[in-house]
Design a protein around this nucleic acid. Structure first.
Length: 594
DNA sequence: CGTGACTGCCC
DNA sequence: ATTCTGC
DNA sequence: GCAGAATGGGCAGTCACG
């Protein structure tokens, strides 16, 4: 298919927000594609070229796309940046830039899906010295041959998202409608999803059903070594909600670490992340520990990988295990510095038997027969919770143990493992949801960043900070980009218009450069999960750690502007330092169970 | 050879 | 991760 | 209630550049 035709389909889809219309148009396009195109198109629709678990990435985002546009158009990079800032979308930015250039373009080869996809593969494969130039050349070449509309979608694919309201689920809807016509619609959709959840490869699914309908996917099954899409938890607003939704339930500690799916076979063990990236190389210790704790022949299990202090065995902050993720060098040393404990919580497969459709307690039992606990492989702490008092106690124990909160899991027959789903069979209830324990801060708005997509034309995020009364300065502590509703967002530029200044006020200490600077004046209420040591924020710089400040983890707007507060009444650097120390103490003083 | 911009992926 | 919105 | 799209801090790796 010509990329121009593909682009026209996308433009039509972009013209509606109605799910049924999107799905119908998508189906229409799937019908028109060749069998060897549909898999590629599925990846492109998601802004990718392969399934996540393949581990081949484009390595391209906004900054490099702007450079490529600059090359393709001859416009200065600053001009392209300005267009992007105004458009709030890399796609329409590219479209505009290419439209301007088109008058002078002479020869161009029409683009096809094949060619674009092929170029993207070349981009992903190229590495080493000079590779960036080569990538830019390939991109610029596509832009050179692209019509403005094609440029819009090429740019968005490169940036990793088409922003059309299409994700995996919509693709499955469309596939079910057009390629499994002879089956009852809901049955077809469910079957398709089951198969997708087991192979985690949307392209493979699409290609198979396009070629042979149901027959094409009937042989897809759970397979050791092929990651299964992770089941997720919804959040509960209160402890009561846990009981309202499931009566009694299985409570588990919610550990703050990396989610790991372990595939154990006779010959080897593979580890996958929540988004199905291969983590095997980074955790040779986990592999060894699993092997010695495992009592079965083969299986698929899930657990949380938590960093622990090598001397005291206490759980460490999430930041520590982050140092092991994605590491290619110094793996052995880091392994010794930051050992981890794997807290197993689920069994999806064991010795020839699938457990996906079994209830929670059956899976838990299989898990417990499959392993003996060792120093670094344990079962997640679990207790059947029947009433509020038990729940309170369990939650407090979890917090004392250094966990984020608790999980509540449905123990009824309906409580199966639903891959890829975020339903109400699992609920999370975290420390920070509890108002008495929630850290709420009053922060001063120091600047703002231009919004993208639906936030084009307003701010995407605010730069906020604390007040330092000793120095009479404002120090950054976090950006704030979530919790705003549309009305608040649309009024924001107006709200800050009179405070907007051309450059950073002298009393603002920041390593970040927002798109707009403000005179420190407006105070905003912010909720966060905890404080972290920050390489970029300047709050309390150098106090807790040399060359580092303090930041807020998971910051969000509570909906309250503190108009009653002057900027000098905001949370102070000193208060943050105290809070950080208190947080550390909480970790030091807690008693570990056992 | 060190640094900083950029990217992708954890939460 | 959290949050908001259209369907 | 689901699905999708906005957005956060912070880590390691890669590459260009001085």
């Amino acid at each position: 298919m010509n990329f121009a035709v593909f682009s026209e389909y996308l433009e039509r889809i972009e013209g509606t927000t109605k799910r049924l219309e999107i799905t119908a148009m998508l189906g229409e396009m799937f019908n028109a594609l060749a069998p060897d195109e549909i898999d590629k198109v599925c990846y492109l629709l998601l802004g990718k070229i392969y399934p996540d678990f393949v581990g081949i990435e484009l390595g391209i985002a906004d900054a490099l796309i702007q450079r490529a546009l600059s090359i393709a158009s001859g416009l200065k990079i600053e001009i392209v940046s300005e267009v992007l800032k105004n458009e709030g979308d890399i796609g329409t930015c590219a479209e505009n830039v290419i439209r301007q250039k088109k008058q002078t373009a002479l020869f161009s080869e029409p683009l096809t899906i094949e060619r674009v996809y092929g170029n993207l593969c070349k981009i992903a494969e190229s590495t080493g010295s000079g590779s960036q130039d080569y990538k830019l050349k390939l991109i610029a070449e596509m832009f050179h041959d692209a019509q403005p509309l094609e440029a819009r979608y090429i740019a968005r694919i490169l940036a990793g998202s088409l922003r059309l309201g299409i994700a995996e689920s919509t693709i499955l809807d469309a596939l079910a409608i057009v390629f499994l016509k002879d089956m009852e619609k809901n049955v077809a959709r469910e079957l398709l999803e089951d198969k997708y959840n087991l192979c985690s490869d949307i392209g493979l699914i699409a290609k198979s059903v396009k070629a042979q309908g149901m027959k094409g996917i009937e042989n897809i099954g759970l397979k050791i070594g092929v990651p299964i899409r992770a089941m997720l938890a919804s959040r509960a607003a209160s402890m009561e909600e846990l009981f309202d939704r499931m009566g009694k339930f299985a409570g588990e500690y919610k550990y703050d670490g990396l989610r790991i799916q372990a595939h154990i076979s006779n010959s080897d063990i593979k580890l996958y992340s929540r988004r199905l990236e291969n983590l095997t190389e980074q955790f040779p210790d986990v592999i060894r520990n699993l092997r010695s704790a495992f009592r079965g022949r083969e299986g698929i299990f899930e657990g949380e990988c938590v960093p622990i202090d090598p001397d005291t065995d206490e759980m460490l902050p999430f930041q520590e295990v982050s140092k092991r993720r994605g590491r290619k060098y110094g793996i052995e040393e880091t392994m010794k510095q930051i050992p981890v404990c794997l807290f197993l919580f689920d069994c999806l497969y064991l010795d020839g038997r699938e457990y996906l459709k079994n209830s929670y307690l059956e899976r838990r039992k299989a898990l417990e027969t499959a392993f003996v606990e060792t120093e670094h492989v344990k079962f997640s702490h679990m207790k059947i919770i029947e009433d509020m008092a038990e729940c309170e106690q369990f939650f407090n124990e979890a917090i004392s143990a250094g966990c984020e909160g608790i999980m509540a899991k449905n123990t009824g027959p309906e409580g199966v493992y639903k891959p890829g789903k975020r339903g109400f069979l699992w609920l999370k209830y975290k420390r920070e949801y509890k108002s008495e324990l929630a850290d709420t801060l009053d922060l001063v708005v120091l600047g703002a960043f231009a919004g993208k997509g639906r936030r084009a034309g307003t701010y995407g995020a605010l730069l906020t900070g604390v007040y330092n009364p000793e120095k009479d300065t404002y120090e950054t502590i976090c950006k704030l980009g979530t919790g705003f509703d549309d009305a608040t967002l649309s009024q924001m530029p107006q709200k800050f218009a009179t405070l907007t200044v051309k450059s950073r006020p002298k009393n603002v200490i920041s390593k970040m450069e927002p798109d707009f600077w403000f005179v420190p004046m407006v105070v905003v209420e912010v909720q966060g999960a905890e404080l972290t040591i920050s390489p970029v924020h300047t709050c309390g710089y150098g106090i807790m750690k040399e060359g580092a400040g303090i930041a807020v983890r998971f910051p969000r707007f509570t909906g309250r502007w503190r108009d009653d507060k002057a900027p000098t009444d905001a949370t102070t650097t000193g208060e943050i330092i105290e809070m950080y120390k208190k947080q550390l103490k909480r970790i030091e003083e807690r008693d570990l169970p056992e």
